[in-house]
């Protein structure tokens, strides 16, 4: 329950949405999608923190039934979310390579042949 972490998460997510809404270059839109993902990852980690707790690893620290450790479930969720973020970036970048070959431009105002 750290206040600085939560404020940083909100700033990252709002900046990510701002970039998707106002920037016209397609590569900047991909960076905005990544910013939203990283902000949510920080939020997940911050939720599982217990102040004064130790790491939940069984063999290298002496973890007895009465010790106090941080929550391990959000750490597993963050790992999955990081992998998903990397895959989204890879797929979006390969689409951008083919768009540049076919349309010749990377401006969102000109990549709009399907409308109406």
């Amino acid at each position: 329950m750290i206040l600085v972490n939560y404020i940083a998460c909100i700033i990252l997510i709002v900046l990510g949405f701002y970039v998707i809404l106002t920037k016209k270059n397609i590569l900047k839109i991909i960076i905005g999608m990544g910013l939203i993902d990283y902000g949510i990852n920080l939020l997940i980690i911050s939720i599982g923190f217990n102040p004064g707790g130790t790491a939940p690893i069984f063999t290298f620290t002496e973890l007895k039934p009465e010790s106090f450790f941080v929550d391990p479930v959000p750490q597993a969720l963050t790992l999955t979310s990081i992998v998903i973020g990397a895959c989204v970036t890879a797929m979006a970048l390969s689409l951008v390579i083919k768009i540049k070959e076919k349309y010749g431009t990377l401006d969102a105002d000109k990549v709009r042949r399907l409308n109406g």
């Binding site: 790491a55 690893i57 063999t59 790992l79």
Partner: peptide
């Protein structure tokens, strides 16, 4: 299975 890290 012993320390932080793993497959990915």
């Amino acid at each position: 299975h012993l320390s932080p890290g793993g497959g990915f």
